[in-house]
Design a protein around this nucleic acid. Sequence first.
RNA 1: GGGGUUUUAGCUCAGUUGGCUAGAGCGCACGAUUCACAUUCGUGAGGUCACAGGUUCAAGCCCUGUAAGCCCCACCA
Length: 874
Amino acid sequence: MKFASSYEPGEYESDIYAAWEASGIFSPKISSLPIDDNGDGVDDRICTKSSQTFSIVMPPPNANGNLHIGHGLTVATEDSLTRYYRLRGRSSWYVPGADHAGFETWVVYERELEKQGHTRFEYSRDELYSRVWSFVAEQRGNMELQLRALGASCSWEDLTFTLDENVIDRVYTTFEKMWNDGLIYRGEKLVNFCPKHQTAFADIEVEHEDEKGTLWDIAYTYDGGEIIVSTTRPETLFGDVAVAVNPEDKRYKKLIGKTVKLPLTDREIPIITDEHADPEYGTGAVKITPAHDFDDFEVGERHNLERIRVIAEDGKMVNVPEAYYGLTTTECRKKVLKDLKDQDLLRGEKKIEHNVAHCYKCGTTIEPMLKEQWFVDVEKLAKTAIEHLENDEIRFYPENKKKVIINYLKGLKDWNISRQIPWGIAIPMFKKIDDRATDEPEWIFDRRTNLREIEKAGVKYVRDEDTFDTWFSSSHWPIVCTNWTEENFNPYYPLNVMETGADILFAWVARMIMMGLYVTGEVPFREVYLHGLVLDEHGKKMSKSKGNVINPMDLVTKYGSDAFRLGILRGRSAGLNQAFSENSVVAGRNLCNKLWNISRLIQSIVDEKESTSSESYTTENMGEDWICREINNCLEMVEKDMKDYRFAEAVEALYQTIWDKYADWFLESQKIYQNAELLKTTLETLLIAIHPFAPFVTEAIWQNLSWTEGFIATSKWPVKLKYDPISAEEFENIRIIVSEVRTTLQGLPGTNNAKKYNLLYDKDSLVEDNQLLIRALTKVPAINALEGAPRGLRLALANHELYLDVPAKVVEEYKDALTEKILSVGRELDALNLRMMNPNYVDKAPAHLVKETRDQITEKEQLIDRLKQQLELI
RNA sequence: GGGGUUUUAGCUCAGUUGGCUAGAGCGCACGAUUCACAUUCGUGAGGUCACAGGUUCAAGCCCUGUAAGCCCCACCA
């Protein structure tokens, strides 16, 4: 095959991915079944487990949607790790996933139904479930194709969908265990309820926003007086069961224990004391509505108060006087206010700013609603998780997140796992409907959720209509993706690393840790790497409403998959929300093209030399030793950066080495002396080293090169190159000389100086021996031995006797620049001398630093001498 | 209210145990040119490291405080 003059990703990427996939190289090589090769009855995988495997699972993208830029970062990060460890020889398993995304998908589907003029209430739960299933099935596939386009080297036959049978099975097993352990309870609690979506939300799914509101003062009367309470929700007064005042509040001391008449009703309610009442706020007296307010619920618990529900799930009034019955909360508020005013009980109103909870999908105000729900008692789970975290069993990147997650777990409230939507895993609980069977428990666990009714021992039960909170099932992710079981040892569990967004640290990571420990007794992963949000180029959050959303697929199409991966990893570090810049993707694209052309050049040299394939090379000149040293340094940096999850730094090191060192110095030098075997080895080394980040272009090159075999994706991580360190260091002198020649020529008056002036050397074997090379790198027309007295312009930085053969007239024009240079070196010298004159520095600083300073002083002094010689030559 | 985090060149970011004469990419300026690559090569100009104190021989880095931004959690009847 031939190398075109530029790399066109579109021509290679899909074919390459298809070839990888067809060859099965992304499947892990170690079976998940027990192996006992030596017949000692012990599973042989146990001893070598951690050093031989690498496992990572994909946070499942929504099966129903397209990938966004955050997924792009996720894949770039996770796949780089996977490919790196695969090259390092580990049996690597990257398990892909798809999320049924319970609520997200439900919202989309319900909108779809509305468009068709239907509502969910026309169908049974089971009908809805199968309808959404088909809906998602139609959409699925998009997301998987996009993951392939990003180069994700995952094991597709292991793709796990969150509604797969084994997932449901595992979730039921856990639930059953929790039920038997008494960790599951049915409780009447206030939940965040969205009246539009008719479902409860976890606290974490609710968004709080500041809003303008009104605080009304209402008079609650008693015989011979009244107490004024302040409220933002007058319509809930029908649910009031008490008025609370602060025990320290002197104003109301006398009223404690009295009863007052609840306005617009005949009911009498007591005046109680509770810390919750803030004397500073409003009138200091607060109405207590346990069924419709979170704080009041707690006050009610403390004082054992009744909970009166006055708002139904559809957002309409119930359990209220006839005149208000069936009104919406808004209508009811109006009427209550009007009626209070008519009865002269409304004593004032004040505009305030307060924080209101909203549904994160539709923006509807969340109604705290009293509901029977399934809860997980999290106390023990959280406690165990904290113990293991404090025991440093999981390493976090960034480190500080460990503290944050422990802090969260310490204050964790019981977990409401019921959701009132059909799209999800059915809760496997059945309620007794046979009242005569009084000895039987009210609720029983049963896996047969495909049935609406079951019969056990002659008693009939009906299935709970609710489904699980998605986090309940996804907290099993490391367990279900690796097919962990109670019976067999699994070499892929715990995962080596969990990679995900820092924004779901609480919702997901914390729950996976609790669940992993509960189910398997082990932490589910050894390390956690959290990435931040990808912000737009101005550092703002991407959102549809702002119109600043960037589609990763557009970038892949425009610049190639590798360019996207290199670009998105650049300038990014763990846990931080950082801006995205298309420029970085452009730089990535350019690097791919550079790699392509480097390979093209090397292939042409190899062809020309008809190099017979031999494994070893010998270095023959300084540049060759030098590049081996630089490549070794680069490998070391990449290895360390990968261990520390410093992807941006690893990419940076490779970029600098490939471009600045390999292409601009080494390959240029190879235009004089060519070492085909070394070129082959060094190219392979660099291609493999950057393969984790740029899989497609490196594979495309690998397949085009005449001497390589197999896939680069499954090649071996390179060993360090052998070289002569003294020779390598000598090449630095050449670099210094070349750089100075270039700089000086650019600084001289006139243009095209490189072609005008020759370089003269005096008794210098380094320059004499490397004339060709220096000429090629500097472009000077000739390099000659100096004859007679020194002339022209002496090069001062390089510690060699070198002169540019420049006419006196030109040097004269350069004089000012030279004088300025002498002054600036003089200033640096002064600073160094000042440091040495400080006795504390000489006494206290480490000896090697003091010596370094002394050496620098000597160097500067010599440099000034040489610069002065330049002046004298004029 | 609690917690976290950021502030370094025009822009986006490195700077890991204090040794810095503060780096990179992009952008900018100047120069080169067809023999791997204009998705190129060479050279250069850009910085009171947010601010104020402190510790130290030495502070971008450590400590105290201030300011501005961002994120998360809790919550205001």
